[in-house]
């Protein structure tokens, strides 16, 4: 390895995953190869059932790959999946019986982090995601978008290096979704985390990401992986720029939808 090609934070090389269901082998992911640099925001885009979620679960250490190589950590050294991964799902999945602050603290409790420091951090994070004053509310008192903000704060509480997001805005209405896209970009730039985000939305995949990986249907096979070279910070009017259109067209073409 030479100095000008640093070891990527995440390296997936020919990753393959099968599930056994009723004696039959189902190939969920056939050949995913992808390098992710630290601090990047990578979107995984593709049709339903293409194994995007499986890739996330492999990254989260919930599944072992059946083939290929998965290396996380890069040059910054040893990577501890439990402490260094935060997760956000399509549903906020807050615990209905806990106040927002206590919901955010859940990963800290499970990891056994010092309480006082964690509470302080939880308050800061709630401020950062725009939920100041909601610490003592219950989830049902919050709108869908606000619940998802709390879920993002929960994913950040243990200061992980990698945030995995599975369709995080898929359950929100279109306007809230646009707003949350901007919020995510702000949170990402403030927290300096590496984010891997699964989405169905091609617009979202282009607008948010510094790097986009396109997966095709059936067993997830990498159709392509390319950087998104749009100016930073992103603004909504970039969606009308020619370059934005070029990227979305390229993805449509890769998915065979043109």
């Amino acid at each position: 390895m030479t100095a000008d090609t640093p070891v990527p934070f995440i390296r997936l090389d020919g990753v393959r995953k099968e599930y056994q269901t009723r004696g039959e082998t189902f190939l969920a992911v056939s050949d995913v190869t992808l390098d992710i640099q630290e601090g990047a925001l990578v979107s995984l885009v593709g049709p339903s059932g293409c194994g995007k979620t499986t890739v996330l679960k492999i990254l989260a250490g919930l599944h072992a790959a059946d083939g290929g190589k998965v290396e996380i950590g890069g040059e910054a050294g040893a990577y501890d999946t439990a402490r260094d991964t935060g997760m956000v799902f399509q549903q906020a999945l807050l615990l209905k019986w806990r106040r927002i602050l206590d919901n955010v603290l859940l990963p800290a409790e499970i990891l056994g982090l010092p309480r006082r420091a964690a509470r302080e951090r939880a308050r800061d994070l709630l401020n950062m995601v725009g939920l100041d004053g909601c610490e003592d509310k219950y989830p049902y008192e919050l709108s869908g978008g606000m619940q998802q903000r709390a879920a993002i704060a929960r994913a950040l509480i243990h200061d992980p290096r990698l945030i995995l997001m599975d369709e995080p805005f898929g359950a929100l209405d279109a306007l809230t979704r646009e707003k949350m896209n901007l919020e995510l970009l702000r949170i990402w730039s403030e927290s300096r985390k590496t984010i891997v985000l699964v989405t169905h939305s091609i617009q979202e995949a282009v607008f948010l990401a510094t790097h986009c990986a396109v997966l095709t249907a059936g067993p997830a096979r990498m159709a392509a992986s390319f950087p998104i070279d749009l100016p930073s910070p992103r603004t909504l009017d970039m969606k009308t720029h020619e370059a934005f259109g070029d990227y979305t067209r390229r993805i449509y073409r890769l998915l065979g939808m043109d």
Partner: peptide, 23 residues
């Protein structure tokens, strides 16, 4: 229980007892 919540705790290497008492 939503399976993703269990995933969340398992990804943090939470114990079965923690899953039971907290979730």
């Amino acid at each position: 229980v939503e399976p993703e919540l269990i995933d969340l705790v398992r990804a943090l290497r939470g114990s079965r007892w923690q899953i039971f008492t907290k979730i």
